[in-house]
Simulated assay, not measured.
Amino acid sequence: MGMFGKLFESKKPAPSYEIHQDDEGLIKSQDFDWWKTLTMDELKAIEQQDNIARMTLYSHCTEIKGMNKEDALNKVKRSFPIYYLTLT
């Protein structure tokens, strides 16, 4: 992120949320520490990159591979799962 982003980005921290007890063993302390360092703007940028990758895969599946829309959507959901939340 450039100088402009560092000066004017939101300092609002990443939201906290509960982890389902079945998933607690999958998350390391380093993951929690990393999450605490992120701002909302950084999370939104990550989400935007994920959405671009999802759309790219969907387009590839439908336009290049000739998959129908439902199969392509299922492929995207399996390749880029969404676990807990989406940012607003």
Rank of each mutant, 00 (worst) to 15 (best):
P13F: 02
E42R: 13
G66S: 10
G25A: 06
K28E: 15
D31S: 03
P81K: 12
S10G: 13
C61M: 15
M3H: 07
C61S: 12
G66E: 08
K44C: 13
K12R: 04
K28P: 00
M67D: 11
K77H: 09
Q21S: 00
D41Q: 12
I52S: 10
D22E: 04
P15F: 02
K12P: 00
K11T: 13
I27P: 02
K77L: 14
L87E: 07
E24L: 05
N68T: 09
K65Q: 15
P13H: 03
F4I: 14
P13L: 03
D22C: 01
M55T: 12
I52Q: 14
D23A: 04
S79K: 13
K36P: 01
L7C: 07
K75V: 11
F4P: 00
T56W: 00
E18F: 00
S10E: 07
K77T: 09
I27E: 10
K77E: 13
L73S: 13
L87Q: 11
W34T: 06
G2T: 12
L57F: 10
S10W: 04
S16I: 02
K77R: 12
P15R: 03
T62R: 13
Y83G: 11
M55L: 14
Q49V: 13
A14V: 08
I82D: 04
T56L: 04
P81D: 08
L38M: 15
Y17C: 02
F80T: 09
Q48I: 06
V76S: 11
A53F: 02
H60S: 14
K75Q: 14
I64W: 05
T86Y: 05
Y17G: 04
T39R: 04
G5L: 09
D31R: 00
Y83E: 06
G5C: 09
P15K: 01
F80I: 04
D71K: 14
L73D: 11
A45G: 10
Q48C: 13
G2K: 10
W34Q: 09
K6T: 08
F80H: 07
K36I: 03
R54G: 08
G5D: 10
Q49W: 06
K11S: 10
I46G: 02
H60T: 14
M3W: 13
S59V: 14
K36N: 13
S59G: 02
K36L: 06
D33T: 08
E24G: 01
L26K: 11
R78S: 12
E70K: 15
Q21I: 00
A72W: 10
W34N: 05
A53R: 11
E42H: 08
F80V: 09
L57P: 04
E9F: 08
T88N: 13
